[in-house]
Design a binder for these strands. Sequence first.
DNA 1: CTAGGGTTAG
Length: 680
Amino acid sequence: MHDLLARLKHLVRSGRLVDAHRLFDGMPHRDEVSYATLFAGHATAADFPGAMALFSRLRASSPPLAAADPFVLSLVFKSCAAAADSRFLPHTTSLHAFAVRSSAVSSVFVATALADVYAKSGCLGLALKVFDEMPHKNVVSWTTLIASLTRAGRRHDALRRFSEMRTAGVPCDSYAYAAALTACADAGLLSRGREVHALCAKLGLDATPYVANTLATLYARCGDVDRALAAVSRMGTRDVAAWTTVIAAYVQTSRAKEAIEAFVRMLREESSNAASPNEYTYAAVIAACADISCVYLGEQLHAQAARRGFAGARSVANSLVTLYAHAAGCLSAADAVFRESVVKDVVSWSAIISGYAKEGLTEDAFALFIEMSHQCSSPRPNEFTLASLLSACATAAALDSGRQLHALAVAAGLEHHAMIRSALIDMYGKSGSMLDADTVFSHRVKDDVVSWTAMIVGHAEHGHSKMALELFEEMCHVGLKPDHVTFIGVLSACCHAGEVELGLRYLNVMNKSYSLQPAKEHYGCVVDLLGRAGKINEAEELIGKMAANERDGVVWTCLLRACAARGEEETGKKAAERAMEAEPWGAGAHVAMANLYASKGLWHEAAQERYMMKQKGLVKGTGWSSVTVGGEGRGVGVFVAGDHTHPQDNAIYGMLDLIYFGAGMTRYVPDLGSELGIGS
DNA sequence: CTAGGGTTAG
């Protein structure tokens, strides 16, 4: 008999549940112990239906066995908690009732496991009730309570319970410290975390793998990579989680290169220290690739993860969708990974939605959102989902849809979220309603740089340059540090207002006072500003100050446009050449040159540019046509009609329509409107 | 034979 039980234990431990059942069925006698052993197998397999079937069998057994056995019940609950499926809630309720009737709840094991089930099924209220009714709580019960509160986002309550537990004199173990540290890490409470760190260091528990990893997570989330690495090095050998924590720490602090290097080192030491990357590791390192849009390496990691059988894991799939959705021109790859992934959560949906939103494919983004809402176990949209959709509305200037999303955000209780607030301001600003943007902005706590920036950009885009600049000064006055996006707004406000001196000063301030290195976008604004003011030489000089690899098609096209406006043929030609070098696929330089020639009445040269575009295959689509219109200062020279590749240009089509109608001309459908010198 | 913990993606 003992021999059979030992064999059963062995089979369960090695995960051979089917063999274990066969042995179990063949046993001459089955008692609570053999049942419990088998239940443990169902628990590790997260097989609640199997556990329930076995439980029914136990209750019907003859001679009768004690179904209320604490060993048995705690394992049934454990398998339910591991399955983490809210559909099992009715079963949990009846098992709870059974446990109460049979007084099994008085077992600290049963009650703790039951509370854990409720917490993991999203019924924190019921879980807390079970906890509070427990006559004796031990360190495991307290830890479960603390972890449940943390998972539900109630970190401060979790830490209160941690203090309560210590006051009650329950000695903490490494699990308890890890739970408290997780609460600190999630809430970003560095000082509280350091206190807990000191407590467990006194007991020497900071070297246990779980605690060390939690400490590393805490410090990494607070931006202190050095402390995170120090925490990990306290443990004997780095396990997978430790490596992953380190890699993730680099990713979270925007150090993608170091993250990738750490991963490479891990692979190199793989054979000697037996720590192989798992799905979380791949998810983290692919996220690093996504951050720096390194699709090439990301694809290799994709292949490697697939070979090792991790590509199907939800975390890896989500990282891959993010990688491909984030990089230009890989949306179909993102879509393929998304469609292939079996289990989709709110992160998967949000990632793919943001991919379509970023490409300006507003309708597809909304179609996906609707598809997500129609899923049978539809994930509730969260701040990431709504923010992506709001940015899609912003690019499409879709005010009505934006308003509906605003209502949705209010209904979901997300309107106060910083991410949502700034997305709303941006959407209202880009959709033409600064009044609504201002309402969102002024009714909330003004401590968020992104919201201020969205307001500044909004005012700048509306031509309210003075307001934009006043807002910027106010923002600095209240002690907020502008970032590089803020300066794009500031500089474009100067550009719209024609404030040459001011623009140059801000470009300088950016570097001197805020130690922000101006990027090509900033130079682009000022080049445009100088060009519009007719200071073509200064504009050219400024381009000379940029790093060579920063000089993209946009700055050259800015200069070219300025030349076109002033009829500066020589510099214009030079700029056009550079623009074509930087963006051989772009048609803008040809269009601008055609405009330049058209404005001088050089119709033949203008036509020549059009012909070159056709030669280069830059004009796609059927039935393309081009029309040359005589100048008269109406602003429009040459335009080309082709297929729409940039739906965000819709606003520009609209503006051009107006101009054309105003000039008594017929409507047209161009895709290169932005190159016609209209807009910024 | 029983209950709790760390690593990930938008």
